[in-house]
Amino acid sequence: MYEEPYRWVEAVGNRRQYLDEQFKQGSPVVALTYEGGILITTVSKGTPKLYEIYDRLALGGMGHPTDLEKLRFSLLEMAHVEGFNRSPSDVTGARLIKNGIAPVIKQAFEEVYKAPFIVRILVAELGQKPEKDALLTINYDGTFEEVTGHAVLAATTAIQAKMLTYLKDQQQATLTLEQALDLTLRVWAIGSLAQQQAEADQDAEAKPTASGAGSVAAVIPSRDALIEHVRGLAGERTIECAILERQAPGTSKYRPLKQAVLLRLLPAALQSVVAH
């Protein structure tokens, strides 16, 4: 039935709709460069969402854990074989994404007989110099984007844009790890609140009596309100942070921030939720 071009376009459209639905409950991911490297933060539920890919590469993801695992393994495989056959400095995020997994994701997305990957991926790459730090994001349809400074993943592009606007507003020239952690959590909260709002709006649309659903979203919550939002969720979820640290000894620069480190760095209001 998909042989006709129109049917195919329609099928791909349906797929987009189906996939967008899948991310509604997902946890946003925020990556940010700070004075010592790159920080990635999420507040995950159940399975971890941040991983080490290679000496200077980290991965953050949203979506189906099994699909994420599958792509994580392809990335690891490609990175290590390349690092062994050529050299570790030839393993770059751009090559892994653009020539490696992006075509695979795009193909799976467009082959309407097969299951697509339910994932959004963020790859952070620590350059030899700070100005070479790169962040790459890739969507479920294989579209990728390469940016510097900061990047986010969230349920919809509108929410991502909202998070980025907040980030640009709040970002200073150089951030310490502590400041960066505080900021990424607030940006995460912006995303998480917007996702909740979007779901509420969708429910409201179903019930015609609700009014003024759109207006609430326009107000930017205060700093405390954002941290409070994270605190409210941190009981059932885990604050997950990892850094690519330029000064780390040895070749592997990836380091997940352990509980003890988080306790020291987190804003005071959040320390109690990590302590238990």
């Binding site: 991983y51 080490e52 290679y54 000496d55 690891l76 290590h80 690092g83 062994f84």
Partner: peptide, 16 residues
């Protein structure tokens, strides 16, 4: 040594 170095890293990163 190169194989071992990559093997241990690969194991750690895949198997967590």
């Amino acid at each position: 040594v190169r194989i071992l170095e990559h093997s241990f890293k690969y194991y750690r990163r895949t198997q967590l």
